[in-house]
Amino acid sequence: MESLYAITTGILTACGLFLTLRGRTFPVVVGLTLLSYAVNLFLFSMGGLTTDGAVIIDGPNEYADPLPQALVLTAIVIGFAMTAFAVILAMRARGDLGNDHVDGGKLEESREDRR
């Protein structure tokens, strides 16, 4: 199970990173979402992977660490809010700047802006 879990997290991270480095805002937002999924999975596994373990300590050996689950919950909520914000911001940028490039447009336009 561990290797499957690790490969999944790795692929998600790689896809997320690739999309985040794109030039248009939509792929960037999708990339950030994938990245946050990968991070949540990663955090979840930090207490060690156990199957059928109790959430509370049930004897010294068989338990699932509850703390990473609490952390993941917090991270999911924050990540969700951030994604919503990033989407709205990207739409606002599309409206105000006239295109969806992360640098706000073609080269000539941004040069004019600076002047």
Partner: peptide
Amino acid sequence: IQAGLHYVVLNLA
């Protein structure tokens, strides 16, 4: 908006 977009994306990463 332009500066904000960079700031937000960088900080999310």
